[in-house]
Amino acid sequence: MEEALTKEEVLHVADLARISLTEEEISKYQVELKKLLNDVEKINEVKGYDDDILIACWNNNAELRKDEEGTMLDPKEVVNNAPRHSGNYIEVPVVISEGEGA
């Protein structure tokens, strides 16, 4: 097995995790992450299991909530904890592109 990830591979996972890295960190993680990933490969040695997936250690049916309103926060409380805010809004540096989600 390889001993280290390439620099590009480290930068890719750092980008997915949104963590900026120094050059020094990059070379450190090239080795450390690879060590973990090599260990994780052991999963391919496991044989004989069945393919069913269970999301977690329960198989209970989700208990649904009644559509009834509860208490909400005061907008002041919402913005007080935010590092940047303006009036009742939470603020971030301008976002150019549109969201990928909904």
Binding site: D67, E68, E69, G70, M72, P75, G87, Y89
Partner: peptide, 26 residues
């Protein structure tokens, strides 16, 4: 619906900014 999908704060439109939220929505 009256409330949001994953929390019981109100599903509403045109209200004051951040007045229809709770810790789950945030």
């Amino acid at each position: 619906t009256k409330t949001k999908i994953f929390s019981n704060s109100i599903n509403g439109y045109g209200e004051m900014a951040n007045s229809l939220t709770n810790v789950i929505d945030l």
